[in-house]
Design a protein around this nucleic acid. Structure first.
Lengths: 188, 188
DNA sequence: CGAGATCTTATGACTAGGTACTAATAGTAG
DNA sequence: CTACTATTAGTACCTAGTCATAAGATCTCG
């Protein structure tokens, strides 16, 4: 039994919400219409294509992961700080921070140092990472000393966001850069 | 300065781990090699393509969502149960379960009924949804009564997984089906 | 140094899952 | 019947690859 357009579109919305991984072809089969009709429906309903939907779900997951890092604890030792200005921390790479087979530091330790410093430099105990754009420039090895320098580049009081740039060095060689966008609780 | 293949591949692994959303083209630029070389590297390292990586991240997120539903509470009323065999529950759709504009039930309530029944039918207090393959067949409306029937289709003691099939009806009309794969704590 | 091995690059054919556009057909209402 | 809406089909193009082949560049070792 064929459904009315109105009915089909409503069920389509629900179906996609509950399974973002479904192709237009499978939807066409499920609703007993052509692929083109499904696409017209999606267009009308402003529902993005499969890959875009998947990407959106994945980005949420990625954000979740970035956020769930242990922010309470500063990774490394802060040797200088001017709140809402800049800060510097030192992190010595130890055995437990590296892969056993090659003594290369796991990426997330370097990231964690930078991220926690980005949090610490903000004059707000409840600051939280909203977004991060990061780059690893060079491998970091066992026994190396990572110097992270954080600089607050923008404070936007209206939307409660603060931008922090972190660069990390080993012996004056750049090993990591990150641009962090942070929530501040004061204006949230 | 160009890196050795070995060095490049190690850094490539880390870079992708930390940013699964990066294209081969961006990687090629970053490492100052051709796109083909990046692809050969990925092949050698068994790192999947962008879209596959994104899908994997998204699937994890989706699973997280399915799992984070409130499983402790049975949605609806259980009117029949034979543990590790089958079960039936009733769920009356109320005002708070529907969209205001059209009185159609939000998909996740129908799912939650089925999922919680799948949990309840298992003779294990700590059962958890590992995976679900679900289909909405028909819209469910305000004041309709959803009858969910769960059947345990497979108990695999070795890997601690149990399969449960749930079908939901309104006035004997099929509105939802789901196949749930559950963790059981006893053999986990 | 030269040969062989390894690595890198380029090209072409193909895939999946679309978007955008055009046009024809079918169904419905006045 | 006409006008409108809904549906279907087809074409050209896109992105981000995979796979295969082959040539060029670089490295290593005798």
């Amino acid at each position: 039994m064929r459904k009315s357009k109105k009915e089909r579109q409503q069920l389509l919305t629900t179906t996609i919400q509950n399974n973002p991984f479904i192709t237009d072809e499978d939807l066409a089969e499920k609703f007993e219409v052509s692929v083109q009709t499904i696409r017209l429906d999606r267009l009308e309903l402003s529902i993005p294509e499969l890959r875009e939907r998947i990407k959106t779900v994945a980005e949420k997951r990625f954000e979740d992961e970035v956020r769930s890092l242990p922010l309470e604890e500063v990774i490394g030792e802060i040797i200088h700080i001017e709140l809402d200005q800049n800060a510097i921390s030192i992190f010595d790479v130890k055995k437990e921070h590296v892969f056993k087979r090659n003594n290369i530091a796991r990426g997330h330790h370097v990231f964690a140092q930078a991220n926690s410093l980005a949090v610490a430099v903000i004059n707000d105990e409840l600051a939280l990472t909203a977004k991060a754009n990061i780059q690893f420039k060079r491998l970091v090895k066992l026994s190396e000393r990572v110097i992270a320098k954080a600089k607050v580049t923008k404070i936007d009081g209206n939307v409660g966001r603060t931008s922090v740039e972190v660069t990390s060095f080993v012996n004056n060689e750049l090993v990591f850069t990150g641009e962090f966008e942070m929530y501040r609780s004061k204006n949230r």
